[in-house]
Design a protein around this nucleic acid. Structure first.
Lengths: 185, 185
DNA sequence: TTCGAATATCTTGATGTCAAGATAGTAACG
DNA sequence: CGTTACTATCTTGACATCAAGATATTCGAA
């Protein structure tokens, strides 16, 4: 077997258990004294993030993009004209290390989606800028990507959606995910 | 700069915006016609999963473990005595490919936390089993890990917690994350 | 001005992961 | 039996990522 098995197997009854319910059930049997209450939330958070990512990747692939490529192009695009950021700003926006940014930018430069140039005022600084081709492919992929995200969430009721959103906002507060980083509006 | 910057910067007022709010604000300015409603949820899901993972990693490191090591040890532990699964079962439980499982098991075997042996009834099958040392380190790390998860969520009110949980359960349903995989109870 | 500290980016080496395919064992069907 | 399909695991090669450190530039204080 080559790929991980992410599909559901049986179309079972209404209140079906998901993988985390099963895992919690196993712990309850094996280690009844262990506090697994937080697993219910954190386990789902990371598992579902992985499952969602797989679905997003499928759409990016239709445009010949890796999701990390799309992430960089989008960060540049939403920075506004002239669609330019420094590597350091990309580090912070994308939660990646500086070495990773160097590598990503080099690859995107080779594909013709971004350019690099030294800043004249501070020659330590590099300016990474989206090319026209970069703007184009980002726009095309983004439209499909947004539709894909909407499709993924289309199975949620309004109440579920807003519960999820409220809960996630609270998580953002707890995690201290303040919005510094990337160039202001 | 070597590490990504994940801390919040300013201890600002009550209804503070997080990084996703900022990103949505940028899109609203740059592409007002683009539907970014789903980004609010999916963006947070994946961003927060990454932020949480970084906090979990810190605790695993105190026990000399990578999180992928802990993941394997835990999957074996919760399978119940004799703490044994096949590589294929690990693939499915951990959402990884078979090559990755081979590599993980080899490393854990070298550290003395698991053993490998061929199944006698079906010699294609391998049995990966936790050693005593494996059981011990998993138990120690798991106690600290569970406490860490509880700590991370301690900033949530009961209402926020249950909203988040309800929302995530709905996501599990939407994503079809049925619990097959790993050996039954 | 000069020199040390700080900053921004890039380089290096190691590593975890995947996709694709190789190997070996089992099952099914004549 | 024997051949073919299937299954389980492992191997290989490519690659994204990270941590640590190297390089180049700017800033600040004596």
């Amino acid at each position: 077997m080559t790929e991980p098995d992410t599909r559901g197997s049986a179309e079972d009854a209404a209140a079906q258990a998901d993988a985390i319910d099963r895992i919690m059930g196993q712990w309850a049997l094996e280690c009844p004294d262990l506090d697994v209450s937080a697993l219910e939330i954190i386990g789902r958070l990371s598992r579902f993030a992985a499952l969602v990512q797989a679905r997003l990747d499928a759409v990016f692939a239709e445009y010949g993009l890796q999701s990390w490529e799309f992430d960089v192009l989008s960060a540049l695009r939403r920075a506004g004209a002239p669609y330019e950021l420094t590597p350091g700003e990309l580090d912070r926006a994308l939660l990646i290390t500086s070495g990773t940014t160097t590598h990503r930018v080099t690859r995107l430069e080779a594909r013709g989606f971004v350019t690099r140039r030294r800043d004249d005022d501070d020659r330590r600084v590099v300016r990474v800028r989206l090319t026209d081709a970069g703007v184009e492919i980002q726009a095309a992929a983004h439209a499909a990507h947004a539709a894909n995200e909407v499709r993924i969430l289309s199975g949620l009721s309004d109440a579920e959606r807003s519960a999820l959103l409220d809960g996630l906002r609270a998580m953002g507060r707890v995690l201290g995910d303040r919005s510094e980083g990337v160039a202001a509006v």
